[in-house]
Amino acid sequence: MASNMDQGNPLLSVRDLVTAFDTDAGRVVAVDGVSFDVPAGKTLGIVGESGCGKSVTAMSIMRLLPQPAGNILSGQILYKGEDLATVSEERLRKIRGGEIGMIFQEPMTALNPVHRIGPQLMEAISLHEKLSSKELLQRAVDLLRLVGIPAPEVRVSEYPHQLSGGMRQRVVVAIALACNPSLVIADEPTTALDVTVQAQILELIKSMQDRLGMSVIMITHDLGVIAETCDEVVVMYAGRVAEKGPVRSIFENPQHLYTKGLLNSIPRVDSPRKEKLNTIEGTVPGLADMPVGARFAPRSPHPQIEEYLKSEAFRSEKPGLVQVGEGHWVEDCPYVRVS
C-alpha cells in the first residue's frame, strides 16, 4: 500500500498549527505545531488520549474554537489552496456545512430537540443551495433514505427524541452530507454508541465515502476504529504529533514508544485471560507545565531516559519530525523512539 501523503495535491494541508487558550491561569497552548495532509478521497485518522489536542485541531480547522478564549496563533490550514486560518468569516460560513461537513460525538446535542428532523435537514441544505421548499423536503427524504433510515417519509416529521441513538447519529451523518461535501470531519462519531450500532455507523460512513468520494478526518481514541477505517494516521500526544504515516506501517512497525505502548496496552478479544496487561506508567503532564523537549519523555521506558530528562536539550529544544519510512514520520528524539 503506497502512501498518498506526498503524492499529488492534498485536499487539506495543515502546516505548523499552533492553537492556544487564554485562561485565568495564563495562556495554554493546546496544539503545538501540528502538520498533516489529508489526501483526496482518503480517510485520515487522528488518535490520542484525552487532552492530546485532537479535538482542538478539528475545531481549529473549522474555526469553531470557543471565543474569545481560543485562538489560532500561527500556522496555515490550506484547503484547496485557500488558507482557512485567515479567510473571512463570511467565506468560512460558505465552507462550513457546505464543502466541509461535521459529525460530532453526541447526536442529541448536535440536533435541535425542539425542531423536527426534516426542517433541520432542509435548513442545512438551504444555507448553501437555493431550492423550493418542495424540493428541499424531497432532498431531506432522499438523504434520510441514503443513510439507511427506514420509512424516511414518516421520520422526516419526527423529533430527535423519537429516534434511537443510532438513528439520531444517522441523521447527523445525513446533515453532514447534505451539500455533497469534499471533506467530512468526524469527531468521535461512535464513542457514545453501543458496539453493534458503532459498527453500523462506521460502515455507513465508509459506504458514503465510496459513493460520494469525499475525504474524511476521523478523530478517535479507539485504535480499533482507526485500524478499520483509516488510510493514514496521526498519533498525537500532549498537543504534538508523536508519529504519523500509513495505517499499516504505524500498526505493524510503530516507531514512537508512545504508539508502541498504546498498542501493547489495549485489551483484545484474543488476549489471554487474567494475564497482566502492559501499561504506560504515569500520566500526561498538565497543559500548564508542559516540557519544551519530548513530551512523552517523563513516561518513556527508554533505558537512558534519566540522562535526557536532566539534559539541556529536554529543557530547551523542541524535537522536529524525522522520516523513517515511506510517508512515515516520527518525533526526532532517540529517547522516545523505538531503538
Binding site: S164, G166, M167, V195, T196, Q198, A199, Q200, L202, E203, D222, L223, G224, V225, I226, A227, E228, C230, V247, R248, F251, E252, L263, I266, R268, V269
Partner: peptide
C-alpha cells in the same frame, strides 16, 4: 456472535465478516 464481531480490531490487516443485526433493541 454479533457483539463479538462488532468489536473493531486494532489490526489493519484483519478484515472481518460482521453479523449485522436488523433494527434496534
Amino acid at each position: 456472535k454479533a457483539l463479538i464481531s462488532a468489536i473493531p480490531v486494532p489490526d489493519p490487516t484483519v478484515r472481518k465478516d460482521r453479523v449485522v443485526l436488523r433494527g434496534d433493541v
